[in-house]
């Protein structure tokens, strides 16, 4: 189903470049993009918990 959808929208020239760049894009996403996102998400989580501690909870019990 997804295949069909992309089949319908893709032929406008994006596909050849997508095909060419598939490996670099995959590697970039898996080994750089997502690890950075994970780290940022955990850092954000840490900050949120810290701010909640300052504002509402007080130090962890």
């Amino acid at each position: 189903m997804n295949n069909q959808a992309s089949g319908r929208t893709a032929p406008s020239g994006a596909e050849p470049s997508g095909r060419k760049n598939e490996w670099p894009r995959f590697l970039l996403l898996a080994f750089v993009g997502l690890p950075i996102t994970m780290t940022l998400a955990i850092a954000a989580y840490g900050f949120v918990v810290w701010f909640l501690q300052i504002l509402f909870f007080g130090p962890p019990s």
Binding site: N2, A10, G18, R19, E22, W23, F26, A30, F31, L34
Partner: peptide
Amino acid sequence: FLKPSVRIGLGVLVTGGFIAGVLA
């Protein structure tokens, strides 16, 4: 994220992602 890959097999993608996850 939404367009399926054409040249890389599903198994390779999952394995690659798995390895990347472990390393990360």
